[in-house]
Amino acid sequence: MSVVIIGIGVLLALCLACGAILGFAAVRFRVQGDPVAERINALLPQTQCGQCGYPGCKPYAEAIAGGDRINKCPPGGEATIQALADLLDVEPEPLDAEGGEKPPMVAFIRETECIGCTKCIQACPVDAIVGAARQMHTVIAAECTGCDLCVEPCPVDCIDMIEVGRDLQGWAWERPLPPGRLIASDAERAA
C-alpha cells in the first residue's frame, strides 16, 4: 500500500516540478510576434501594393497565418503561391486575380506634365518618389516596386507603369527543351 502512495507522491512531485519548469519557460522564453507570419512575410514580394486587399505585405502575411487563402498576391504570382504552399503544407491554388500574373513593372513620371502636387509621394509605400511641392517629381526606378499605388492619386495622369525590360546585365540563358523531347511543339517554338 505504502508503495502505491510513495509512487503517487513521486509522480505528483515530478508533475509539479515539470509544470513549474514549463510555466517558467513559457514566460521567460516567450517568442515575440508570430513566427509563422514572419516566415510568410519573408516569402511575399514586398511590393506593398495592397492588391490582396490588405494594407501591405505584412498584414496579408498575418492574415494567411490566421487562415486566409494564399492565392491573393498577383505580383508574387505562381512562384509565391508555390512557396507559400510548401511552407504551410497546403495545396497550391490558382492565382485569384483579374489580370492574372503581371510582369514586373516600374512607375514612370512624365516629368513635363508633373505639376508637383506631392500626392504620389504620399501614396508611395516605399518612398521611391522624390520631389517637393510645386517641384517636378521623379521615380527612383531602383527602389520602385511597381505597386501602381501612385497612378490613381495623380491629378494629371502623368504616371505610366512600364514593364521592366531585360538589358544585357539582366539577360539570361533560356532553358533548353527537356531531354527526350525530339520535337518541339509550335507553342514552344513561339515562346
Binding site: 512575410n41 511575399l44 514580394p45 514586398q46 511590393t47 506593398q48 501591405g56 505585405c57 509605400p125 516605399v126 518612398d127 521611391a128 527602389e143 516596386t145
Partner: peptide, 12 residues
C-alpha cells in the same frame, strides 16, 4: 529587392 522594399516600407 523585396528585402529592400520591406526595410523601406517599415522605415516609412
Amino acid at each position: 529587392r523585396a528585402e529592400q522594399a520591406r526595410l523601406r516600407f517599415e522605415a516609412r
